[in-house]
Amino acid sequence: MSEMAWIDAALTSARPQAIGALLRYFRDLDTAEEAYQDACLRALRSWPEKGPPRDPAAWLILVGRNAALDGVRKRSRQTDLPPEETISDVDDVETPMAERLDGSHYRDDILRLMFICCHPELPATQQIALALRIVSGLGVRQIARAFLVGEAAMEQRITRAKARIAKAEVAFETPGPVERAERLAAVAAMVYLIFNEGYSSRSGEADARAPLCDEAIRLARLLQRLFQTEPEIMGLTALLLLQHARAPARFDAGGEVVLLEQQDRALWNRGMIAEGLALIDKAMRHRRPGASRCRPPSPRCTPARAGPRIPTGRGSSGSTPPWSISRRRRW
């Protein structure tokens, strides 16, 4: 991989944590995004020279925060003497980095960032568009392409959604266990919506929309790393992996849909299937009743020995995520 590609990948994967922390600090999405962009520009200048930092997210948070505070300082110098609180903010920059990047925060930072995108007043499509823009950092053009709308329309849609959540009350305190669980459920549903948006593409659109599936899987894995013991998230990640594993076989050369029974199983992605099955194994161990019974249907379908009972993903775009439906009970 070229150096730029590596930097790009590092910036993308550090993004949710960095913006999440900057949002906690500045309590304003636009400021947080701007600070992050600023940090990225500096990273593009500095990393090729000095090499990537040991912890890209920490670097971006520190630099982004300093850059934003610098801006405040400059603006206030042009007008008046710095107000007292700005000065104390500047002093604050000197506090040890470890304190600011307290590891226990970052899980809730990322969850909060994702959660504000699932504001209940926002229609599902806006939630997805907003998450792709803010959390994933996809460009407006790319999102517009995936939604098959014009760039200007998508820009407007995202701006409107942002204006809406700017007015919404977002709790910045560390959430309690109940609130955290509620946030996680909302975020998991949104990740599934992103996946579905990519998965339910017709032939011809598949190229533009398939990246949404990859992005959903990336977000699901991110959630699972943050919440290692959540069977619900294991089930979600497994479901997405098992569905997406069949993507190469879903359309023929002419772009026609190939039904499951006719699919060339040699094209299925064995790595994804194996990972999905491993996650189901883990989730099953929890035997927890309720919605968190992860049950991606008929997972025991591998390219080698397969009964044709894998879900097509159709009819599952409703509000009930399919992994909460227990089709077969082991307990």
């Binding site: 991989m1 590596w6 994967s13 990336r218």
Partner: peptide, 16 residues
């Protein structure tokens, strides 16, 4: 960093 490596596209992965 696995979040970086597992975010590689199939082409990047194949190239590596």
């Amino acid at each position: 960093a696995e979040d970086v490596v597992f975010a590689w596209s199939q082409e990047e992965d194949d190239a590596v």
